Simulated scan of single mutants.
Amino acid sequence: MSSTPDILCIGSVLWDVIGRSASHMRQGSDVPGRITRLPGGVAMNIAMTLTRFGLTPGLLSAVGQDPNGHELVDACERLGCITEYLYRSEDLPTDMYMAVEGANGLIAAIADAHSLEQSGARILAPLIDGPLGSAENPWTGPVALDGNLTLGLLEEIVRLPAFAAADLRIAPASPGKAERLTPFLRAGRGVLYVNLEEAGLLCMQSIDNSSDAASALVARGASRALVTDGGKPASDATSEGVISECPPEVLVTRVTGAGDTFMAAHIAAELRGADRASALHEALAAAATYVSGDVTS
């Protein structure tokens, strides 16, 4: 499909292989459940949610020329995403993510995003000197960026003229990659979307609630920070202050992708003109609906 994107989603686009069981699990558990393979990755999860709000996202990522890659691109297009700007490597395999979830939440996960990391700045070519923008005529729309990119590439993005006019929205991808967002703290660029654990890692301290965590991120240099904390209140902080709201109470049937859904719904709400409080409310409602299983992946 070919059209102008409403938003660019930059980062991991891969296959999610998720095993889910209704049983409480621990290390070594062997239980019945369901195993699914769906398009995933942080950038793709955000993009899929954006399409549900009527937006057309363009994907910038690395996808192999292997059978998994061809299937993935076809699936992304069927879901309403623009794939023509993807870097299609002939040498690198399509990335994958594998997770196991039980009734007590995420048990374990492995993200194999090596091809994305090895592709480096090649995934940004359409934006740096191509059909989406250049240093002289930079992209001026929203960009959803994820921390599966290497620290070096994220540091480069902060400095690149091609990103100077973009509305940057950034997620760390996982607690293990939270510190990759440090360049955006130092530069005071973008809106950070993190959970409480990730906020604590970025602030290098243990923090008990989302309001304090969001405020601490702004104190450390973030221009704006949204912090979630599962079923506890989420917060949105800027230099003007903090707002918080508790998410709706729902029965949790899945957790993988919940943070990406929150971020996408928040972006979509603000693109429609919602104020801070309304956008936070809509994002929490969308995430609650997702974890309850009422929206298909």
Rank of each mutant, 00 (worst) to 15 (best):
S3P: 02
P233N: 05
C9E: 14
L92R: 08
R186Y: 08
I243D: 06
P247L: 05
V252S: 03
L38C: 10
A264L: 05
N195V: 01
V255L: 13
V17E: 00
D6F: 04
D167T: 12
V194Q: 07
P138D: 10
L50F: 02
P93W: 04
G19A: 15
V227W: 01
G259A: 08
S119W: 05
V255R: 15
G221V: 05
G147S: 08
D74M: 13
A135W: 14
G41Y: 01
T228E: 03
P161E: 10
K177E: 11
S174Q: 15
D229P: 02
L86G: 04
L185N: 02
R34V: 14
C76G: 01
L226W: 00
G11K: 04
P138F: 10
A113Y: 12
E136Y: 02
V17T: 07
S23R: 12
N137L: 13
A216N: 08
S21Q: 00
M44I: 09
G130P: 05
A264I: 09
A135N: 11
D229N: 15
V17W: 00
P93Y: 03
S119R: 08
I46G: 12
G147K: 09
E71T: 09
L271G: 01
S23C: 11
E84M: 08
I157K: 01
D212A: 14
V295G: 09
L168H: 05
